[in-house]
Design a protein around this nucleic acid. Structure first.
Length: 417
DNA sequence: GCTAGGGTTATCG
DNA sequence: CGATAACCCTAGC
């Protein structure tokens, strides 16, 4: 099996990892097994960050995840990412052993980490910046060295459960807004509302692929919609005009078809009479010349030759002629116009050559057995024995396509020779 | 209905 | 043209 390309792996990861109902443990197995795409989709990155946040919601790493989340394209304006980011940063400052150091590192100007993210003047991220965030950053900056302010802030932001709740709210909102995967979008184009336009723009090769993806019912439904859309008033007018011009043509020209058909029937009837007559003659000649009928007819001919009778079959019966009703070709590939001699055969005696051609099924074209078929047959015989061709066949429907139990038996016989 | 075995036909060297 | 493989026919269970 060919190895999965990074592009295909990207589609799978985008679809599966971005599905909130897939447990993170399962998503991690996929991530470990598939090549990670060079350019992951925003949906994949978003879902990875959300999964990381779910396992570790209020830490420095969570702050990283939130900042990355805010930097992804197409942010949800209603997303609580800003509030969550602030809640985590504030909790980290409040829970640190050294409030002053932590508050400075996070909120002091210039360069405090959370300050840089929420303050426009520090080049803040629009998705994280807000007037509320700026007020809180200022409060933390002012609280450095101020025990009273620190106690107030700890009361407001020092609760881990509260900070985690903020992050969880964010997770729920982001998962809800994560949108369809690339595969879902593609499926929507092929079998969803946009299907008619997609199918109409596709050539037959591409449509063949769509048929497999969409299934029989859906394909029929879409194609019928395409037909409907083609039936515009202009199309109806063209059809109407064509019918009118046909009627005009019939008025001035006699339709030659009925006369041609009658002539053909007449010729056919005459040929049938002649063929039956010839068969009767053949039968009578045989009855007179051959004492034995059956598969030994060829040998009978040999006997007649030895007895000094005419050396050619046409000599043997100078009045005999054969008609070729089947699509037989001469060895040089051209359709024979001559009357070919043929041996008297008991099968031909009582019936019309036409009936023979119609009733006898055409022999199947010989198809070589593949090594896979041979191997499957070997294993089948090993498993079921060499008298259970039906079992071997029905247990290997994929290997023995177009083979019958008799074919299996014959092939085994050949293999054992 | 299934299998075994003989017969027929096509293909290949 | 003979050998062989693939396929066909049919008796017997």
């Amino acid at each position: 099996m060919p190895r999965l390309t990074p592009a295909d792996a990207s589609l799978i990861l985008d679809h599966v990892v971005g599905d909130a109902s897939i447990p993170t443990a399962a998503a991690n197995v996929l991530l470990a097994g598939l090549p990670f795409p060079d350019r992951p989709t925003p949906r994949l990155l978003r879902s990875l960050l959300l999964r990381r946040l779910a396992t570790d919601p209020v830490s420095t790493a969570a702050l990283d995840s939130l900042q990355l989340l805010a930097s992804l394209p197409d942010p949800d304006p209603a997303s609580p990412v800003s509030a969550a980011h602030l809640a985590v940063a504030a909790f980290l400052a409040c829970s640190a052993p050294d409030f002053d150091a932590a508050a400075r590192a996070l909120f002091a100007r210039p360069g405090g980490r959370a300050r840089r993210a929420v303050d426009d003047e520090e080049g803040g991220d629009p998705a994280l910046a807000s007037s509320e965030a700026l007020v809180v950053a200022d409060q933390f900056e002012a609280a450095v060295g101020n025990a009273f302010s620190q106690e107030v802030l700890k009361g407001l932001f020092g609760d881990r459960a509260k900070a985690e709740r903020r992050v969880r709210d964010l997770l729920a909102a982001e998962w809800a807004a994560i949108g369809p995967s690339r595969l879902e979008l593609a499926a929507e184009q092929i079998v969803g509302d946009g299907a008619v336009e997609t199918w109409r723009a596709a050539d037959e090769t591409v449509r063949a692929k769509y048929r497999i993806l969409g299934g029989k019912e859906k394909t029929r439904e879409i194609l019928s919609k395409i037909e409907d859309r083609i039936s515009t008033p202009q199309v109806h007018k063209v059809i109407h005009d064509l019918k009118l011009s046909c009627a005009d043509l019939h008025n001035v020209v006699d339709d030659p078809l009925p006369a041609a058909k009658a002539a053909a029937d007449k010729v056919l009837a005459a040929r049938m009479d002649k063929a039956v007559h010839i068969n009767d003659e053949e039968f009578n000649n045989q009855a007179a010349n051959c004492s034995i009928a059956g598969p030994s007819a060829v040998n009978d001919q040999g006997d007649t030759l030895r007895k000094g009778t005419p050396s050619s079959l046409m000599d043997w019966n100078p009045t005999a002629q054969s008609l070729l009703w089947e699509d037989s070709l001469d060895p040089d590939g051209s359709r024979s116009q001559s009357h070919r001699p043929h041996l008297p055969s008991p099968r031909r005696i009582p019936v019309s050559p036409l009936q023979v051609a119609e009733n006898k099924a055409r022999r199947r074209r010989a198809r070589r057995w593949s090594s896979v078929e041979e191997e499957t047959l070997r294993k089948g015989v090993e498993q079921f024995g060499s008298s259970n061709w039906k079992d071997i066949l029905i247990h290997n429907p994929d290997a023995f396509i177009g083979r019958t139990t008799v074919d299996l038996k014959d092939k085994w016989r050949n293999m054992m020779r």
